[in-house]
Computed example of a mutant assay.
Amino acid sequence: LFIDYCGPTVDVVDGATGQIRPTQIFVAVLGASNYTYAEATWSQGMSDWIGSHVRAFEFFGGVPLLLVPDNLKSAVSRADRYAPEVNPTYAELARHYGTTILPARPYKPKDKAKAEVAVQVVERWILARLRHRTFFFLDELNSAIRGLLGELNNRPLQRQKVSRRELFETLDQPALRPLPSSPYEYAQWKKAKVGIDYHIEFEGRLYSVSHSLVGQVVELRITAALVTVLMKGKQVALHQRHGSGRFSTQPHHMPKSHRRHQQWSPGRFLNWAKQMGPATLTVVQHQLETRPHPEHGYRACLGILHQARHYGNQRLEPACAQAIEIGSPTYRSVASILKNGLDKNPLHEPITDHEPLTHDNLRGPGYYR
């Protein structure tokens, strides 16, 4: 199967705003019969590239033994005449369908001659006939392309006097491999370094892995629903991609020291702190919100709780207020203030009422009347 994009684009107009958005025309052609598939997508990006392949295989009703794409970035991560590096997502699609990818060599147009001819045919027999039409939806454009595509494939070839469809049914269709039971689900591949909090980050959300992998570089396979973490090709973690909160932490990934505190939660700490007073609440919030992961704030919160038990609830609130005032709302500061009894000596003397000052140079209220 030879694959490429047309040079010309087709515009789709947003009916609400009037904004014009160009679409890319994907073309795939089978080598023996020239049986052709084409569709419009918003881009040549990875998601559209993979989706076009899935729909092309469904159109042909099977999978060819070999895929010959051009060297666009969605297909080839690093172009090389002898050893091109295929994009991981594209390679995974090929494994799913049991086919092989052989990118065309750079600057070797003969490697993709079939694709270039098919692109020209699509431009002349389909896009040229659509050039005076206005489309307001991508589906509307693809519906028009499908109608003309049927005409193209059923039209007799000049030399052979048979259609592409007839040749397809005779030559290519018997050689196609069957489609798998389910279509390929698009997945992104990323590399990430495991942080000190034994979490990796993707799009602002953090996912846990075993704490033994801290500092290691792992691979992420991201689908619409799942985040799979792999180390040297072996799955080490699996998470739901979306969920409540910023963190997705699995208990068996925690160090034992964290598991001991699993019965605690941010809500439980905050409820306890509210009972102590607003300053204690602020200090506890600081422990939970300024750490890479709330679990890392649990120890500090438990330490503050221990201070309350040791020195009493009445002393904890003034100590927390003083820690906030000096700009250090941490467990160590609170513990130091209590240990040294500084909570008993406020930093500032309380403001008291004084007799109003009188002086010859002071204007009284009568001056402003």
Rank of each mutant, 00 (worst) to 15 (best):
V283M: 05
P109A: 05
Q307A: 10
R299D: 09
L67A: 05
R291Y: 02
F136C: 03
L338K: 01
N154Q: 14
E201C: 12
A187I: 02
L65G: 14
P183T: 01
L316I: 07
D70K: 01
V12S: 08
Y97K: 00
A187E: 10
H96S: 05
S210A: 07
S210N: 12
G341D: 04
S43V: 06
I337Q: 05
L167C: 05
V122L: 01
T41A: 13
M254S: 07
Q322Y: 09
P178Q: 03
A83D: 12
V121E: 10
G245M: 03
V12L: 08
I326Q: 09
K256S: 14
S52P: 01
G364K: 10
P294Y: 09
L238G: 01
L357W: 11
R241H: 04
T249L: 06
S33C: 07
T170L: 14
L149P: 08
G327H: 08
E201A: 15
F26W: 03
A28Q: 00
E151V: 10
A225V: 13
E169H: 11
R291M: 13
T352F: 13
T249S: 11
Y97E: 02
S265M: 00
N153F: 05
L230Q: 06
E58S: 14
I50R: 04
F168R: 03
T134F: 11
H96P: 05
P329H: 01
V119M: 02
I200M: 03
N271V: 15
F136L: 07
L213T: 03
E349K: 14
S33K: 05
